[in-house]
Write a protein that binds this DNA or RNA. Structure first.
Length: 565
DNA sequence: GTATGCTGCGTTTAGACAGCATGTC
DNA sequence: CTAAACGCAGCATAC
């Protein structure tokens, strides 16, 4: 720790710039603060810029401002997009001297720097505690060092805790070779999505073309074993049939044939299923990021249709729903989850009238338990009460079945509840700062979660459309606007105006202007006093009413042209 | 009296691509 | 490959 800081300070004294790579967000922040503490020089412009991006700065924003005063910054995915941009630009311009960062900065954008300091080459990995990062990542980070325009060379310094580690690092990273790159197709969600998309677009029409197509991929090239590959593909295809996204029809009479020959193949299935489980373990061990599809849903009955193994004459057809799912780039597993939940939602709401808050909880929990929303907000030790209360209150109206306490997926379920509670607070107009304190969600992540939720709900709208669920569509539309803007239901009317978001709508509402009609009845000057004259004029224009011309006011610091004429 | 530092214990641990159509503070 | 660093509380010490 002190070595990294000393190296950073030394770099500044040399009038050069450094990036310190660390392995957690907290470390990045702390490291930056420690360096900043030891610097005297003060810059007042940068902190102002950083704080300006949010009306309710969190502790994180404030810490960043403290660092920037000393021309130091930290950088990780929890920062707001704008803050990241400011940091990157100011660093390029040389006004920020040191950035303490997580691996965000290693990938993608180019931020050349004189010295890269790698405080630790280990990172936490769920199963095995702290572990050495891949050589590829080391190269990424070390590769930031050296600015071809200004320097003849750059430095990448790795810090070892003792001689033994020094040796290890030298062997693994300095002398070692980078790892092989593995095909992304080996990840089940990707494979599922691709097969559906290929069938939907007609590129894959039958077993033969499917095998032909995938044999040419990088995945097959690595995998080598074609029968296994075929088996994996078939497994996916079965799922797609089971979910009704793909039909396998007879080439001759085009008749759907899914459910007819279930029984006949049972015996045969026992054999293939054994084979399949072998494959699964095989792949899992080979590809560390392999995500098992079956984990998310309840165990489906294992002996199911497997009628496409030897049917060279059958052709694959995507259903209407299948095509739409593919067009939405949704993982079929997620799509199936959404469809099941939406059907239940529809049925439940026909039987009983739940209040809109409960309805929203149902819908939010539905999307909070998808692969797409991940990472979910994690239930921490102090959150258990909060989450348990919510479960108690809602367990009988959940759209999915609550998994067993001892089930492997139970923690995920708990996380989904916490994520739901976060969304609920967001549309209850809680501030960024509130959410940060209560859920420990970083400002930058709020926006990410919201845009994913919006996308998923858009997909739900499309699905409901195909399912002809008009009431559901209505609910989702409303919820989408609320999610996008983070507002209570009562502000929905005001949001129709452009230029009005959660803050301004709330201001108007507080002043007893609660809908478009109130707005029409209020005169422009009165509105102007609440949210500014310029906007008031603009709103009147949008309402199709008479407007009062306002004199353009001189902005602070703006020079009058008359001086020069 | 208050700022700073040390120790011990409990807790936590990187990141990121999808659709669609524009405009929040 | 089977940890390591952070944050907080409580207490000791320095000013």
């Amino acid at each position: 720790m002190p070595q990294a800081i000393n190296l950073a300070l030394k770099t500044i004294m040399q009038k050069k710039q450094a990036i310190v790579f660390v392995s957690s967000r907290a470390s990045a922040q702390k490291c930056a603060l420690e360096i900043a503490k030891k610097i005297k020089q003060i810059n007042l412009i940068l902190p102002e810029q950083i704080l300006d991006v949010s009306p309710t700065p969190t502790k994180q924003c404030k810490n960043l401002a403290i660092c920037l005063k000393k021309e130091i910054a930290f950088h990780h995915a929890g920062l707001l997009q704008k803050q990241k941009e400011i940091i990157e630009n100011e660093f390029r311009a040389g006004r920020i001297k040191v950035i303490c960062a997580t691996p965000t900065l290693a990938a993608g954008l180019s931020l050349p720097v004189f010295r890269v300091i790698l405080r630790s080459l280990k990172r936490f990995s769920g199963n095995w505690g702290m572990n050495y990062i891949p050589v590829l990542e080391y190269l990424q980070m070390a590769g930031r060092a050296g600015r071809p325009e200004y320097e003849k060379f750059g430095e990448a310094i790795s810090i070892a805790k003792d001689d033994a580690q020094k040796q290890e690092i030298h062997e693994k990273y300095i002398c070692g070779k980078p790892e092989e790159i593995y095909s992304k197709l080996a990840v089940e969600p990707v494979l599922r999505t691709y097969i559906l998309s290929l069938i939907s677009s007609g590129i894959i029409r039958n077993n033969k073309t499917m095998l032909e197509f995938f044999s040419k991929t990088f995945w097959a090239h690595q995998f080598k074993d074609i029968p296994k590959l075929q088996s994996k593909l078939n497994e996916m295809l079965e799922k797609l049939q089971e979910w009704d996204f793909v039909h396998v029809v007879d080439n001759l009479n085009q008749e759907t044939k899914e459910s007819t020959n279930l029984e006949i193949k049972k015996e045969e299935n026992k054999v293939t299923n054994n084979l399949k489980s072998n494959i699964k373990t095989n792949i899992t061990s080979k590809f560390s990021d392999f995500v098992n599809a079956t984990k998310l849903t309840k165990k489906q009955n294992k002996t199911k249709l497997n009628n496409n193994n030897h049917n060279e004459d059958k052709i694959f057809k995507a259903t209407t729903m299948g095509k739409r799912i593919s067009g939405l780039y949704l993982d079929p597993l997620t799509a199936n989850h959404l469809i099941t939940c939406l059907n239940k939602y529809q049925k439940q709401n026909n039987n009983q009238d739940l209040d809109s808050q409960t309805n929203n909880f149902q819908l939010l929990q539905m999307i909070s338990n998808t692969l797409e929303i991940r990472p979910q907000l994690k239930v921490r030790t102090n959150d258990h009460e909060l989450v348990q209360d919510a479960i108690l209150k809602h367990h009988n109206i959940l759209l999915q079945k609550e998994p067993d306490q001892y089930d492997l997926e139970y923690p995920q379920f708990l996380n989904s509840i916490k994520t739901t509670l976060f969304f609920q607070d967001w549309i209850d107009e809680k501030t960024q700062d509130n959410l940060f304190e209560k859920f420990k969600i970083a400002p930058g992540e709020i926006n990410v979660k919201i845009s994913i939720a919006d996308w998923l709900f858009y997909a739900c709208e499309e699905i409901s459309h195909i399912l002809k669920q008009k009431e559901t569509i209505k609910d989702i539309r409303k919820l989408r606007i609320r999610i996008k803007n983070g507002v209570k239901e009562e502000l929905l009317g005001l949001l129709k105006l452009s230029g009005v978001g959660r803050i301004r709508a709330r201001k108007l509402h507080k002043n007893n202007i609660k809908n478009i009609n109130d707005l029409k009845k209020t005169n422009q000057t009165a509105i102007g006093q609440i949210i500014g004259n310029k906007l008031a004029q603009d709103i009147k224009k949008q309402l199709g009413q008479e407007i009062i011309e306002i004199k353009p006011t001189k902005r602070k610091g703006q020079m009058s042209l008359s001086k020069f004429t």
